[in-house]
Amino acid sequence: MSDPGAKPLTLPVMPVKRGTLQDEIYRRVCDLILDGEIAPGQLVTIQGLADAFGVSAMPVREALQRLTTAKALTVISGRSIGIPKLSLDLLTDLRRVRLEVETLAAVWALACLTSDDIARLDHLVILMDGAIADGDVKRYLHGNREFHFKIYSASGSEVLLGLIETLWLRISPFFNLLHEAGNYGVANAAHKQILQALRVGDPKALERGIRSDIGNAAEVLERMLK
Rank of each mutant, 00 (worst) to 15 (best):
C30D: 09
L124F: 12
L99C: 14
A57S: 14
Y26I: 00
F53C: 02
A111Y: 00
D51L: 06
R61G: 10
I38D: 07
Q42P: 00
L67M: 09
L73Q: 11
L110R: 01
Y26R: 02
V29T: 09
R96G: 06
E37W: 10
Q22F: 01
L121T: 03
L67I: 08
L113P: 03
T74P: 04
A105P: 05
W108V: 14
V44W: 10
C112M: 01
V125T: 15
D51C: 00
I81V: 12
S80E: 15
G130V: 10
A39I: 03
T114M: 01
L90N: 06
L73I: 06
L99Y: 12
L67D: 04
M58N: 13
R79Y: 11
A63C: 01
V60Q: 09
E102T: 13
D51Q: 12
L64A: 05
D35F: 08
E100T: 14
L124E: 14
Q22R: 12
E100Q: 15
L127F: 10
R96L: 06
I46D: 00
I76Q: 08
M58F: 10
S77Q: 13
G36N: 03
A131L: 05
R95C: 06
L110Y: 07
V107Y: 08
A63R: 09
A50S: 12
A72Y: 08
M58E: 15
L32T: 00
A72Q: 06
T92D: 12
I25V: 13
Q65E: 09
T69C: 02
D23V: 07
